[in-house]
């Protein structure tokens, strides 16, 4: 039977980066997972609500966790920032029963279901980079990347703080590398794969943010990569949608296609490229499609 998850795509994947949401949904049956919708879930606040109103952030995120609890399943995300916000709230109330009680009081007052603290939050990447996930891929004969040189880009919030995230060593992450190889690709290694893309301050401090994304984009280019892959749609916006701006700001060129993680998997498994909607990217991915022959 397919493994069920409460699916939490996050706002960006539902709106600006629809291609990510659609590709993930198309992949799910091939990976033997069922993604159950969460129609009453709010935005996680992206760290912004936490920065303005910390108690509200916590209560809203616990409300989401409780919805998954009611469904009897764990949450699966496809965004770094959602993962951190949900996991952090989960850890805070699991570690502190009195805090959970106080949050539940508010939830009940507002007519929402209280949380018992029984759910986990995982990212698609984490699910796939385990033995279980890799064997699911293996069943599909996943060698379609045909030696494509892929620069893994983790960004920040799926790795740090490790006290909340904890899937792998934040200084030597290997989950993306494992997937790239399992799909028949080659890893283009570079130092900045876990540095920040600048997205959180991209709107408020564009000049600073574009210097940040430059570090990863230029190193990925210099490593000879055909493309980058990221597990986070916010990183994707910073690296893809803002890439031309970063080029102008840093007086250089990257010409670096950036794939969402599920798109890379889709290419590896050979699903129809039209489903993955590469036309929605700002940087063309033609060179990638040429290598994999799609």
């Amino acid at each position: 039977m397919a493994r069920q998850f409460a699916y939490y795509p996050g706002c960006v994947a539902e709106f600006s980066s629809k291609e990510l949401n659609r590709t993930t949904k198309a992949l799910a049956p091939m990976l033997d997972i069922e993604l159950l919708p969460m129609p009453a879930a709010t935005c996680c606040g992206a760290g912004d609500i936490a920065e303005a109103k910390p108690n509200l952030y916590l209560t809203l995120n616990v409300r989401i966790l409780s919805q998954a609890e009611e469904m009897g399943v764990d949450i699966m995300t496809i965004c770094n920032v959602c993962t951190l916000n949900l996991r952090r709230a989960n850890k805070l109330v699991k570690d502190d029963p009195r805090l959970l009680e106080a949050v539940n009081e508010e939830l009940v007052k507002a007519g929402a279901r209280p949380y018992e603290g029984t759910r986990e939050v995982t990212h698609l990447l984490w699910f796939l980079a385990t033995e279980e996930g890799l064997s699911l891929l293996e069943k599909q004969g996943p060698k379609g990347l045909k030696g494509l040189r892929v620069a893994p880009y983790y960004g920040c919030q799926l790795l740090r703080p490790s006290s909340v995230m904890g899937f792998e060593d934040p200084d030597q992450p290997q989950s993306l590398e494992r997937l790239i190889r399992a799909l028949g690709g080659e890893v283009a290694d570079y130092e900045a794969k876990s540095k920040c893309c600048g997205f959180p301050i991209l709107l408020a401090r564009e000049a600073v943010a574009l210097k940040e994304s430059h570090v990863a984009l230029s190193q990925a280019r210099d490593s000879g990569a055909d493309c980058m892959v990221t597990p986070c749609p916010l990183c994707h916006l910073a690296m893809d949608a803002y890439q031309r701006k970063a080029e102008a700001a840093n007086a250089t060129e990257y010409n670096m296609p950036v794939l969402h993680l599920p798109q890379l998997i889709g290419l590896g498994l050979g699903i129809d490229t039209s489903i993955m909607e590469f036309k929605r990217h700002m940087v063309p991915v033609n060179n990638v499609l040429e290598v994999v022959g799609s």
């Binding site: 706002c11 709106f15 606040g45 920065e51 303005a52 408020a204």
Partner: peptide
């Protein structure tokens, strides 16, 4: 601008529950 960014999230939350880009 950084604070207004956060404020936009709060307004979105109140009016629809999701980020209003």
């Amino acid at each position: 601008a950084g604070a207004r960014h956060a404020k936009a999230f709060l307004i979105s939350m109140r009016t629809g529950g999701k980020l209003n880009e």
